[in-house]
Write a protein that binds this DNA or RNA. Sequence first.
DNA 1: TTGAAAGCGCTAACAA
DNA 2: TTGTTAGCGCTTTCAA
Lengths: 336, 336
Amino acid sequence: MANGITLGKLAELAGVSPATVSIVLNRRPLAKRIPDKTQEKIHQLASKHNYHPNQLAKAMKSQSTGIIGFICGDINMPYYAELCSELTFAAEKRGYNLMAMLTQWSYEKEINALERLFSRMVDGVIIISNAFSEHNKRTDNFRRPGVPLVTMTDFKGPGVCAVFSNYLPGMDALFTLLTANGYRRIALADYSDYPLKYEAYKACAIKHGISEQRFDARNYPEHSFDEISRGIRLDLPEVLICSSDYVATQIISRLALAGLRIPEDISVVSIDGTQWSESYNPPLTAIKQDIPGLAEASLDILFGIINGNHEIIEKSIPTTLSVHKSVKLFNPEFTI
Amino acid sequence: MANGITLGKLAELAGVSPATVSIVLNRRPLAKRIPDKTQEKIHQLASKHNYHPNQLAKAMKSQSTGIIGFICGDINMPYYAELCSELTFAAEKRGYNLMAMLTQWSYEKEINALERLFSRMVDGVIIISNAFSEHNKRTDNFRRPGVPLVTMTDFKGPGVCAVFSNYLPGMDALFTLLTANGYRRIALADYSDYPLKYEAYKACAIKHGISEQRFDARNYPEHSFDEISRGIRLDLPEVLICSSDYVATQIISRLALAGLRIPEDISVVSIDGTQWSESYNPPLTAIKQDIPGLAEASLDILFGIINGNHEIIEKSIPTTLSVHKSVKLFNPEFTI
DNA sequence: TTGAAAGCGCTAACAA
DNA sequence: TTGTTAGCGCTTTCAA
């Protein structure tokens, strides 16, 4: 890890003290009282030697690394990949960098990742963890005084800031569209551990007079998509809402291999609406999460805490409906 | 960024000097001459106060942060998402962490990302950059003495270590399969800037007596997939090989919307073979890159340089053929 | 057997 | 107007 020139050497070359160089290079206001020629010389030397401050030393002094940790089970699924991208961009916009730790959804690895981030002195952590899901509120072990933590699961519990989607707007728009097109048999395929999506589905089903039909992936051993796809074929709904783009692709690829055509034989809607879902075959109608919005909100809250705001915030970001070819519409006027 | 207890405080509590604590906690061999009871006490205090060494200070002293930078245009495309995952795992296995910088394939952002990684004192950098592609060998501006750099583009040039796939084995297996099934019109859709894939295609076409048909995305304004898909429909091959999973999904979704059935009307093969391609509709036959192997090789080379090996290494990792439903096989015995 | 001191590169407070 | 000093937390001689 050899680096270029240091501030000290620059000071030597300029014949001034390190402090002077530091002041000139960083704090314009305070530098006013230093002669122009000295400043000139320092700036020239700096660019001549391509000086870049050592962030390590800066962090040591300021007790702030400019790194935000991101703990996530897996960034191969399209939703998490996009979220990771957006968090990276949002952090960068604020002059920070993201460090992602991948845990394969293991609680032990999450704890371990957190410890490592803490010892790296990160300025905050964004975490997506099963331990923060609605049914499993293990928030202990996750805190370090002074290091803000924001969870991005559909968590509502005490003492932890959380950012998640509000599925109602997208779901309601979907039900409006589907019922206007005459659909009555509208099912949900999801994981019962994450009830927010189910709750939105249920609320809309009631509101629109649709009876509930649910395929719970938790009912199937090892969450086998073969099993759940078979279950769906045996009791075929007109429209299947899948709880994520990932789930949708797993199920559609299986239904299609079994000879079902999408959307001629069954319409499919996914929740997420990543850019991937738009280049699926067929392109997926989706209840679309506002991933950039989620990323921005998380970092806003994180930096709020860093800047001294200590209230516990939960923020939900509305979803929208994004219509593509995976739903067969009889009544094109109702395409919203 | 408040942290827990420091080594200094631990020393105070134990009534010994920081040096003693450091020796006891880190270097077992040298610690032999310190009384067991002292060691005992130190270890107890450490775990009681949940002591974790401050990596920042360690890095400052050792001049090694344990961070590997990763520069990539985009991690939403499935190949790069998987690569980023595997690099993260491979780095972690070696006690390192990865810091990803996303550049949207902009040369300026790449240079900027590199500068920031350097000032963060990373121990090495893995980079995927257009600037390192075969047609555009801008390797200058990318070096910092003492910080090893490994590129993962299909680059073959002087002075830079590179890791990339060897597409020949997978391509040859594909041509063997296709010709055994009677196919003669086998086309390639790719970007002519990255010639390695084309070269493999060409070599296999010649070897198997197939005449070349190429759809070059560079010929189309703004790489429009609408345009290239139209071109393909106007001069329909029996089999279309797409230069990545991403390209395959873009083209297939468009061909399907135009009424073509895969594989009944046209067989499609992709290059990459990510887990995504297996849950596409239909699951994609692919010339599969060994992504974990690529990640491992990159880090091996990187750590080789860190440990003093200064020869320039180029390593290619063989591809394999992964057969799924996107190719129609008449002769099932030849499914390899 | 243990401790004191210096130093990694930078900055903030205090002197001069 | 500029320089000196101290210190962030850790490790590594060297001295006791």
